[in-house]
């Protein structure tokens, strides 16, 4: 399966619809993300970004189809290749930071994870906190642990839901570097955020959402050729 741009399509979302009672949170959206591509889901609060990410991660019921590396997103094969960083970090209160990584390593059958785990903890300044319990960590640190858990398995697709919230400047810098490293390894990254500045220098494809719809989908070079900044385009399409 090849996309029109970079290469192999890693994520295909087709006619995704999610309704909560009377609220249509996501309204039949479709998009693709290829390997080595960083796609950002931008949108104001309540646009449906997090709901979209949760549907892709298989946490919600929905109409439509989502395929990860050609497999339905709820299949075991798909789950083996994607990592998910939730909007609100959810750690086990009784597990230490390192025990979270041990758990993930066994859940995903990752062999020789120790060195990778150490490197991740070091990058996010968590090495000296590895024996701290989940309940003892601040929200920012919990977010870092969530990121480490998602990256330990060397995912081919990573879903980040508002990943910068609560992170300190160093962690944000590290995370941006990680985005680029993952991209260079051929990984597909989907980042849901409403902070345009936080992803300005890493994105390849932008999907702007408003009221459950994708109101604009553009590649970086298309935006650059238009002469408008991402911020200008964002306000233009979301404020009308």
């Amino acid at each position: 399966m090849k996309s029109g741009r970079t290469g192999e399509v890693m994520l295909t979302v087709n006619d995704l619809t999610k309704q909560y009672d009377k609220t249509l949170a996501v309204n039949g959206i479709s998009f693709e993300v290829s390997d080595s591509e960083i796609a950002v889901l931008l949108g104001p609060n309540g646009a449906g970004k997090s709901t979209t990410i949760k549907c892709i991660a298989g946490m919600l019921r929905y109409k439509g189809s989502v395929e990860i590396c050609g497999y339905p997103n709820k299949s075991i094969k798909a789950k083996q290749v994607f990592g998910y960083v939730p909007e609100t970090p959810a750690l086990y209160e009784m597990l230490t930071v390192y025990e979270h990584l041990v758990f993930i390593a066994h859940a995903y059958d990752i062999k020789d994870y120790q060195e990778k785990a150490r490197q991740l903890l070091e990058r996010f300044d968590l090495l000296d906190k590895q024996d701290k319990l989940g309940k003892e960590l601040s929200k920012g640190m919990q977010q870092k642990v969530s990121i480490c858990c998602a990256l330990l398995m060397d995912p081919k697709v990573v879903l980040f839901d508002e990943p910068m919230i609560g992170l300190d400047p160093k962690a944000i810098k590290e995370l941006k570097e990680i985005f680029l490293e993952l991209k260079s390894k051929g990984c597909s990254i989907i980042i849901s955020t409403h902070l345009i500045d936080s992803v300005n220098d890493v994105w390849d494809k932008v999907l702007i959402m408003k009221e459950g719809n994708i109101v604009m989908s553009r590649l970086r070079q298309e935006i650059e050729q238009s002469g408008e900044s991402l911020e200008e385009i964002f306000f233009r399409v979301t404020e009308h």
Partner: peptide, 12 residues
């Protein structure tokens, strides 16, 4: 059920 892990772990 309140944590995301059980939903995303690759197992039946």
């Amino acid at each position: 059920l309140g944590k995301p892990y059980i939903y995303i772990i690759p197992a039946s």
